[in-house]
Design a binder for these strands. Structure first.
Lengths: 181, 181
DNA sequence: CGGTTTGTTTTGTCAAGACTGAACACGATG
DNA sequence: CATCGTGTTCAGTCTTGACAAAACAAACCG
C-alpha cells in the first residue's frame, strides 16, 4: 500500500526553493491520500478519492495518462474511476482541438455533497415511515415515538442546513466559476 | 439475506388488532433493515445497524439472546456488535439484580452523530493543512487556494451547524432522558 | 465437584469489490 | 492497409471484512 520512491532527488542542496518544493510535494501527497481515505468512507473507490484530491490541486486540466503516472495506478483504473466521477458530476472531461487525448478537471464539487444530503433525507424518510406505521397503535405515544421524532428532526434539520450552506456558497462564487449543478 | 418465518404465529385471527399488528411488524422489519443499510454506509457492520434499529423500537431493554433470536443471527455476532456499539456509546448494557443475563438499550444516540461531525472536521483539517503548505508558494493565491477555501468553509460550516443541532436537541430533551455524551 | 447458563474469542468460510494486465475497439497517420 | 496512440472492457487475483460454528471462560447451581 505504501509507495516507494525510486528517485529520492539527492541533488537538493543547490536550489533555494528546493526545500519548499519538497515539503509542498509531501503535503500534496498527504492531501491526496487523505482524500482517498475520505472518499472510501463514502463508499467510493479509493482511487476515485485520490483522483479528486489530485484534481483539486491541479489548476489546469490533467491528461489521462498523467493521472495514471502520477497516482501510480493502471490506466484501466483511471478509466473506470474518471468515468465514475464524471457520471457523478464531480469531475469533467475536457478535450482540446487537434488533441486526441482526454483531460480532466474538477467540477466545483457539489456533486459529492448532494449525495450526503440525499443520505440524510433517506434516513429521515425511513424514520417517518416507521412513525406512520406506529400511529394507529394504542399507547404508541411513548418513548419509541419520541425517539423517532428526535431522529426525524435531527436529520431533517441537518439536511436543511446542509442545503442552505450549499446554496449560500453557490450564490457567492458560483457565478464566477463554471458552476455545475 | 431474506428472512424466513419459522413461527408465523397462526393464532392471530382471534384478535381485532391483528391487521394493525401485522403491518406494524412489517414496518418494523423494514425499519430495522433500513437501519442496517444506513449504518453499513457508515462503515459499520450491517448487524450493528439492525441492532440499533431494533433497540430504537424497543421501549424496554432487550435481552441478549432475544436479540440473536429476533434478528436471526448468531450469538457470536450479537456479542461482537453489541460490544462495538457499546464502546461507541450508541447503546448501553444494563443488568438487573438477581439476573445473570445482559440487557441492552439504546443510548439516545448522539454517539453515531458525533462520528459524523468528526469526519467533517477531519476533512476540514486536511484541507487546512494543504492550504498552509501552499502558502509560501509564489502565485499560490490562485484557483487552488480558492478551492481549498471553499472546501474548508463548507465543512467547517457544516460541522458547526451539526453541532448546534445536537446541542439544541440535547438541551431540549437531554434532561428528561439519561442523556449520554 | 459435574453440569448449566450466559457471553466471549477464535478459526474458518464466504462474498464483495478494488485493482490490474491483457485483450479489445477504433480513429488517426504514415 | 499496417501500425500507433488512446481509452475501454473483460477476466482474474487479491484483500477485506462480515458472519457463523465451535471451543472456551466464568459464574452459578445441585
Amino acid at each position: 500500500m505504501t509507495v516507494s520512491e525510486p528517485t529520492p532527488l539527492p541533488d537538493r542542496s543547490a536550489e533555494p526553493t528546493a526545500a519548499a518544493d519538497l515539503s509542498l510535494h509531501a503535503a500534496e501527497e498527504r492531501f491526496i491520500e487523505a482524500m482517498g481515505l475520505m472518499h472510501e468512507e463514502d463508499r467510493l473507490p479509493r482511487i476515485a478519492g485520490r483522483l479528486v484530491g489530485l484534481l483539486i490541486l491541479s489548476p489546469d486540466p490533467v491528461r489521462f495518462d498523467h493521472l495514471a503516472e502520477r497516482l501510480r495506478v493502471s490506466r484501466a483504473s483511471i478509466s473506470t474511476n474518471t468515468r465514475l466521477l464524471e457520471n457523478m458530476g464531480v469531475i469533467q472531461r475536457v478535450t482540446r482541438p487537434g488533441d486526441r487525448r482526454d483531460y480532466f478537471q474538477i467540477n466545483q464539487e457539489p456533486g459529492l455533497l448532494l449525495r450526503i444530503v440525499d443520505r440524510f433525507r433517506a434516513r429521515q424518510a425511513s424514520a417517518e415511515e416507521m412513525k406512520q406505521a406506529l400511529l394507529p397503535e394504542p399507547g404508541a405515544g411513548g418513548i419509541v415515538a419520541e425517539r423517532l421524532d428526535w431522529f426525524i428532526r435531527f436529520y431533517s434539520t441537518l439536511a436543511d442546513s446542509l442545503n442552505s450552506v450549499l446554496a449560500a456558497m453557490a450564490s457567492r462564487d458560483g457565478n464566477s466559476r463554471p458552476g455545475p449543478a
